[in-house]
Amino acid sequence: MREKGYRLESLPFPVQLWSGRRAVGTPADGIEIEAVTEANFEECMQVESIAEFGGREIREKAFAMEFAHPDFVHYLLRVKGEPASSLCLFRAGQYVRVENVATLPAYRGQGLIGHLLHHVQQEFVRMGGEQLWVCPINDRVERVYSSYGFETVGQLPFVHAFLGGAGVLELRA
């Protein structure tokens, strides 16, 4: 991979498994969650273009590929009609992983992740999934997921390959 210009970095990722305790989905005025379709694809892309994901140039191609694949389901959270946050579920049989959780900077710190997690926990139960996983990107995010019923069960080394821009380690710094 290096001979083709890729940079590699090894990241220790905590692995969390959902305990079955559902996130509290306190109803809030103006918050709506919807599956991403062709009609709202661009609005979700706007959310997923956050700097932490490398910006639009980095995320756009992967997002389009995920959207086209039947094992990925993206959700868009709106606040008073405006796109604010997104989340993806990746399904591998009965195993489902939460991925690509993003919130636009103007909406951070408002507890939107709790609404999304409550929603996808309900979807997971409806799908008949066996295990719901998440691999948080840092200790702070790990604590957030813990407060929504995810328990850390171990750590896995994760090798991240990327062509350009900053790596995850650089973005964390």
Rank of each mutant, 00 (worst) to 15 (best):
V15M: 13
F63C: 06
H118A: 13
G55F: 01
C88Q: 10
L87C: 05
Y95Q: 10
Q131R: 09
V47W: 01
L169N: 13
L76M: 03
A68F: 06
G81T: 02
E151D: 07
V36C: 04
G128A: 12
G54I: 09
N40S: 04
G30S: 08
R7M: 06
L104E: 05
V101A: 05
S147F: 02
P12I: 11
Q121W: 07
H118R: 15
F124K: 07
R2N: 14
S10Q: 12
V36T: 05
L163W: 12
D139L: 07
L112N: 01
A84H: 02
M65V: 12
R7G: 03
T103F: 04
P27I: 06
N100V: 00
P83R: 02
E43W: 02
A92S: 13
C135N: 03
H115P: 07
V144Y: 00
V96F: 03
H69M: 06
L132K: 04
R143Q: 13
L132T: 00
E170I: 11
G81C: 10
L89T: 02
L104G: 10
L163F: 14
D71M: 01
G128C: 12
F90H: 06
V134A: 04
L8H: 10
L169T: 14
G149S: 08
E38I: 01
T26H: 13
E42Q: 11
E151V: 12
R59D: 04
R126I: 03
A51K: 11
H160I: 07
Y95H: 11
V47N: 02
L156C: 10
A92E: 09
L17G: 07
D29N: 05
F63V: 05
Q16P: 05
E34M: 06
V141S: 07
G165L: 06
F162P: 01
F90S: 06
Q155V: 14
Q46R: 15
G25S: 11
Q155Y: 15
L87F: 00
M45E: 00
E48R: 13
G20L: 13
L169C: 14
G164L: 10
A28C: 14
L76G: 00
R97N: 09
H160Q: 15
I113K: 04
T103M: 08
P83T: 01
A102N: 02
T37K: 10
V159M: 12
P105W: 12
V36R: 03
A92P: 12
V24T: 12
Q122Y: 09
C88E: 09
G149N: 08
L171N: 07
R21L: 06
G54A: 15
R91C: 11
R140A: 08
V144H: 11
I137C: 05
I31F: 03
